[in-house]
Design a protein around this nucleic acid. Structure first.
Lengths: 347, 347
DNA sequence: TTGAAAGCGATACCAT
DNA sequence: ATGGTATCGCTTTCAA
């Protein structure tokens, strides 16, 4: 009773060959009812189940998928992406091999030179960070499908699912302008050493909307407030906004996690949204709803699921309808934005 | 160039045996410098790396850990536990095989009868849900270390790391009572079909503190408000609180995710904390800090890490200092609680 | 319907 | 220091 029973122990006990035991589990329909029943009984008695290891070996597949991410899985976006991928892959027998914090120069270097995923995974997902040409080349040496989620264009992906960060933030900004705001501030954190593509794209969207609008609205004032990354980025943003000579009549936020603390903390300084200013976020992350934050909605869970479905198709050499997809975030109007009347604008 | 190079291709190309190639990767120090260098060069040229599959087969280990959880990984607690376990196991070469939503009767049944983890993982983690005797027995058939995180006592675990939910909530409640509150309401959601041990334990803690205090404070009034589970449990709690004949002077919350929306939404109904009532949460989850919520702090990331360290030791047959650990949550005083003066209490 | 045997990738023992 | 070989658990032809 010491050692766990193996396939041959079961075969012997059931008086059949290991081939038959194998078949009982992999293709039960081609085994006679009586044999199958007997084998299953014995197997159960011995706590025997087919191991995936043998199958992996034989098939050459690992039933593992690598997920590379900037920062930690604990962020809202990353968790959702993970859960979305898992929602598709789990039932197909795949595990997700997680590689977090591919963000510092060292961790990147280490990852891409060691390339621990080489010959160890069946597919690679890259979430939310840009990849450099040389790294892309390294990654392609894995010779498995590589699917990007919220990544900038790059030749190394077989498929990408991205939201239109730039267009989305442009529309968010246009919304504020259309509401009559004329002194808009964009708060964002500095990008990570490894370029987080979303951060840059969103800023570009804001700038584009503003420069464009300025052609017809000359008195439009706008400004980008960039604060250091890290735990306290929201507090830094708060300080930066309060330090402005005239308090803005609208704040456009890189993400909800910045917008939500801002809304709450600005109250303590007498600035109430939407009474005193409008504010819009990006993501529609937890509590945005509770707080009534107007924001651009995106669904990273679904994006992860889409990525996984594409990877699976690529694995089977099936054609992809749309290998490179750009998803549009949608404006969710809630209660932190309000139209300015002419008097206020003039004031 | 079609097929990927295997270990024997590399061996042949380098003019050595496969044993040598294997040694170059597993114990490079016992291979001569010149051979090692040559093999590595060839390996790199062929994009060859040692596969974990072969190693698994040989060693009998799977380098996979199962993580069973109630509900979804996207909840704060579950994500933190996952990240904590991964922080220890990742570098040791383990992947986490996630089994979410072991909560409905059917999904439980399916999981425990199929027992997909049998012979497929090296260790099992159970996060935050109670297990029945029969299920425990099933689980033990895996014959691998089973470590529980926030689980009620049960014979089936080789180790458990739990927070003292009951004691923690008792102290939270005592805090409110000591502050002078005399009309306390406890808001919580109904437990899942699969018993979420924390929910029950916390309620017990509240009830115990109240019944105990009532011995010396006869005019203490308290009540448990139980609302349906699901997405809108916070809204249900809000409605339940507002439906009380006299608005409570203190609210004790099962978790921050209930307390935070409550604090925010009660404002719209003219009830401000701590001016009109005190409120205390449990967890110290995201935004508790931002909102200044007084709460009981726990650290599920660290608990996951502890669980993983214990599992690793068990795997190596090392003794555990403290196999069954009870962690105390700590009271974090912020700004949603306030002492009532005698006048107020009398009113 | 079932069995025998080869082979997948890596390791470790035993030789050399 | 290196090579040959058995072995791990399973799948899959090919035969019976």
């Amino acid at each position: 009773m010491e050692k766990r029973a193996g396939i041959r122990d079961v075969a012997k006990a059931a008086g059949v060959s290991i081939s038959t035991v194998s078949r009982v589990f992999s293709r039960p329909e081609i085994v006679s009812d009586s044999t199958r029943k007997r084998v299953l009984e014995i197997a159960d008695k011995y706590d025997f189940k087919i191991t995936r290891t043998g199958t992996m070996l034989k098939s050459g597949q690992t039933f593992r998928a690598a997920l590379l991410m900037n920062e930690s899985i604990t962020s809202w976006f990353n968790t959702q992406v993970f859960a979305g991928i898992d929602s598709i892959l789990h039932d197909k027998g795949y595990d997700i091999s997680l590689f977090q914090h591919i963000d510092s120069a060292e961790s990147r270097e280490r990852f891409f030179t060691n390339l621990p995923v080489l010959r160890n995974v069946d597919m690679v997902f890259v979430a939310s960070f840009a990849i450099e040409a040389e790294e892309a080349e390294q990654l392609q040496r894995t010779r498995v499908p590589i699917v990007g989620i919220n990544v900038p264009e790059s030749s190394c992906f077989d498929s990408t699912i991205s939201i239109d960060d730039e267009g989305g933030m442009e529309r968010a900004t246009q919304h504020l302008i259309r509401l009559g705001h004329r002194n808009i501030v964009y708060t964002c954190s500095q990008p990570a050493p490894t370029i987080d593509s979303s951060i840059d794209a969103r800023e570009r969207g804001f700038v584009r909307a503003c420069t464009q609008a300025q052609l017809t609205i000359p008195d439009l004032r706008w400004k980008v407030l960039k604060v250091p990354r890290g735990q306290q980025f929201a507090d830094f943003a708060l300080a930066a906004v309060l330090a402005e000579e005239t308090f803005p009549d609208a704040i456009c936020c890189q993400m909800d996690m910045m917008a939500l603390p801002l809304v709450l903390k600005l109250q303590h300084f007498g600035h109430h949204a939407p009474r005193d200013y409008s504010i819009i976020g990006f993501d529609d992350s937890p509590y945005a709803d509770t707080l009534g934050l107007t924001t651009m909605h995106q669904d990273p869970f679904e994006m992860g699921a889409m990525a996984a479905r594409n990877a699976l198709k690529l694995l089977n050499n099936e054609p992809l309808n749309e290998p490179f997809q750009l998803v549009e975030p949608s404006l969710i109007l809630r209660s932190t934005d309000e139209r300015r009347n002419v008097a206020q604008i003039a004031a």
